[in-house]
Write a protein that binds this DNA or RNA. Sequence first.
RNA 1: GCGGACGUGGCGGAACUGGUAGACGCAAGGGACUUAAAAUCCCUCGGGCUUGCCCGUCCGGGUUCGAUCCCCGGCGUCCGCACCA
Length: 877
Amino acid sequence: MATERYNPRASEPKWQKAWDDEKLFETQNDDPRPKYYVLEMFPYPSGRIHMGHVRNYAMGDVVARWRRAMGYNVLHPMGWDAFGLPAENAARDNKVNPRDWTYANIETMKGQLKTMGLSLDWAREIATCDPSYYRHEQKMFLDFWRAGLVERKSAKVNWDPEDMTVLANEQVIDGRGWRSGALVEQRDLTQWFFKITSMSQELLDSLDTLDKWPEKVRIMQSNWIGRSEGMLVRWKLAKESAPEGETELEVYTTRPDTIFGASFMAVAADHPLARKAAETNPALAKFIDEVHRMGTSAATLETAEKKGFDTGIRVVHPFDESWTLPVYVANFVLMDYGTGAIFGCPSGDQRDLDFANKYGLPVVPVVMPEGADAKTFQIIDEAYVDDGVMINSRFLDGMTPKQAFDEVAMRLSGVTVGNRPQAERKVQFRLRDWLISRQRYWGCPIPVVHCDDCGSVPTPDKDLPVLLPTEVSFDKPGNPLDHHPTWKHVDCPNCGKPARRDTDTMDTFVDSSWYFARFTDPWNEQSPTTPKYADGPQGWLPVNQYIGGIEHAILHLLYSRFFARAMQVTGHLNEVKEPFEGMFTQGMVVHETYKGPKGWVQPAEVKVEETDGKRRATLLATGEEIEIGSIEKMSKSKKNVVDPDDIIASYGADTARWFMLSDSPPERDVIWTEAGVEGAHRFVQRVWRLISETSAELSGIAPQAASDGEAGALSKAAHKALKAVGEDIGRLGFNKAVARIYELVNAMQAPFAAVAAGKASPELRSAAREAVDILIVMIAPMMPHLAEESWAALGGEGFVANRRWPDFDPALVVDSEITYPVQVNGKKRGDLTIARDADQGAVEKAALALDFVQKALEGKSPRKVIVVPQRIVNVVV
RNA sequence: GCGGACGUGGCGGAACUGGUAGACGCAAGGGACUUAAAAUCCCUCGGGCUUGCCCGUCCGGGUUCGAUCCCCGGCGUCCGCACCA
């Protein structure tokens, strides 16, 4: 019988329309089935979707469709992270309005996503640039403020000179802006901050509860929060050297045990004591200026030489009134960590040692390795930082550093300096507050009015949302809202006098820190009252499975964790603290690069062939041979991008999805190859052939599993696959599920040939019908269009998308006979096939009777026989 | 420097809790069908030789009846953080 090839171009739009018409994927909040919320990180509407999106959404869709088949009420929404600088750049360069540009991109990308056949609830679509979205964000900002979670303060902030805006610490990568790549400068500015540090300990502790998160992400967050336990120690200034009015220097240390190894103090250039001393010391003032000039960017800090300047001030050692130490200003001490001042112990810290050696300061070893000789142990140019025994430390000698720490803490907390203890234990975090002000137009306006008399005044709830002006100019560099002729001029909501709006907008990471909650109830419009999102057992939150790139391991995931807590404080959430129960970080899509004489060349313009075991690339246009470069993330600069539209147009969405899920484990990078896509497409056609060639024979047949013979073998293969694929998808092991489906189709080949030829027994036809039903349900999460088309070809009723995932038959996934590998001295020498329920003794007896075992025994009895039931037999001779 | 992950055929990768290493796919080679091509189907595919045996999961040791998996010591690759006191 001649069969037609499967035509995705006809089939896919047809099924997409049918699903849409039926509103199949629109989710009801009051559906009684158990809830399951699966979410992929929503895209920025940059213009077109790329292969990374295809991979991300293909995975999410498998989870969503599978959970649906498992009987859950699945929430699987999509939206747009729609504020951001690229819209302003486009506006500036192409004279378009950022809003128009953004919405046009959304239209395009939505169309592209629709061609993928994703089971998304588009009725819940949101765009963060829509006032119906950001009005709630403004409300939350004000609620957070009232709850003490927002602060306006002057601070040293990261200034991106190219994007002309400030950045949060998390957005500075290797000293450069995360988006622009420009070297970041430090500036003193008054800005808005979310007080994420007020939750440092909680955000750290709660990481332990996230057992469905990648370990890697939890470690990264833990390091970012950066908790350390140490002590604040207050050193008295030696009276004759102290500047007017200064009496003490407070330092933070994690190593108070090394206090007898101290040989100098160092303070940051911005430390009050340094400033004070500089007032009467022009050379010191000059040094501080130098530090300021060079020390602005993290990149220059890295290569900068360690430098110090002796202030002439001396401090008194807390345990010895007669012992004074010099105070330096040093360029490597950070003002915003600890107290901006340290004591240097050269023998126990490499940086302190380098500094001491440079300035001729004493180096006294205070910790030595266990068993070393205290009389001869020396530190020359390598500090000793490991555990050991205290030496040269008076009453601490012989203790471990840990004991010495406690001893110092105990003794110093009993002494007072002024009216405070000389030292106290202190937990310090590396995490800084989240700076959210951005000097940009295309973002959520900060709903605050600044009044000369009343200060910063919240916009009253009744005046929300504070809308962005629609007419805006990008002719001048800098903040467009600030340049706007009228927008910022308003009356103070408090006193009614002329005042001005805050002209900054919020960091776009604020927009993405709560969108997962918004999806659960996008119709919630009760402003200005507090919108509340259902969570806990009755509601959707937390998200059960979140999927996205590892690049958000810190930024977005940490901010969202903060937000969920803050929303709970202000009543926007009831009880949920962690927004994402399960997190999965998927790998990138990478591709070979091609380099011609005129630079990088797109894959579409290249032909790659293998001859004599060597791969060569030639230009399609000219036949000229070009260089095959390294495999890298798809990027415009290397031109190694493949457009999803092209792939869907020529192979169909199912092929693209199937390929994305095959081969590579989802957390690792996947290499996009033409051959791989063709392989995936061959499988699509193969499944279709299998079904279309047998559909006439199988259409009216009732599915029935068999247990014996050829039909039984088929049923067993189908049920084993059903069990394995379900387990694999549940663990997000898509590549393994794909392999199982290949195995099943391979096993179906021969019996289905018999069915197609009309030579199958009634039992085999029934078993075949069952097997093909199972196959269709199993491929449906991954290749939904092909599944529907196949189901229709078999005369099935309704949508596959509505079918339940069948239960496997436990009797069919175990074999009545087991083939044991039989080892002699741990090496496999043959097999033993025996009844599954044979007891250990029977297995041993049968194994010993095998001729290769007899031969190995040479008439003697074995030293030992190991029988692991259902596994292996090992005869030790 | 600190923290983490990984290392298996020509390639992507399987291998459960220590139990047959290489499932599945890709590439390659051979054959069938065809006037021819495409498509499809069949066979081979870690290495070696004496064809039923030896070697083989980065390298060297160890534990074990048995190690890709556990332990010790190296080598290599990748990722994150980094003057954090």
